[in-house]
């Protein structure tokens, strides 16, 4: 199956990756090839087979609800690209259309 450039651009927006026109074309061709390969899975009848999400025989692992020390703000902010006081600084979140 062949993806269209519009589909690639739509996926890129969902993934929040801004692609150049050249990248869109390269990925359109490469992703189409990979999808053609993985479509071989349709050869298998899996109607009666349950899905496996993970293989550990564990579910609902709980931790005790107790107060523990947390990291000081300075350590958590040390890698921030931009900050103001004890906050991560970002562009305006409200007030525009996406």
């Amino acid at each position: 199956m062949e993806l269209t450039s519009e589909e690639v651009q739509h996926i890129a927006m969902l993934a929040r990756i801004g692609l150049t026109p050249e990248e869109v074309e390269t990925l359109r061709s490469q992703l189409s090839g990979i999808l053609a390969h993985v479509n071989q899975l349709n050869e298998l009848d899996t109607e009666a087979i349950p899905p496996t999400a993970q293989v550990v025989a564990l579910s609902n692992v709980f931790a005790a609800d107790e107060v523990r020390p947390s990291f000081p703000p300075e350590e958590m902010l040390a890698n921030a690209p931009d900050r103001e006081g004890n906050s991560f600084k970002v562009k305006a979140v409200l007030g525009y259309e996406t």
Binding site: G18, M76, P81, F88, V90, Y96
Partner: peptide, 21 residues
């Protein structure tokens, strides 16, 4: 919170798109 951030973003979404590209 950490890692690379573009300096060219015009707004929040544009910053995400360019940062990840």
């Amino acid at each position: 919170r950490y890692g690379y951030r573009t300096t060219e973003g015009n707004d929040l979404i544009d910053t995400y798109l360019r940062t990840r590209d």
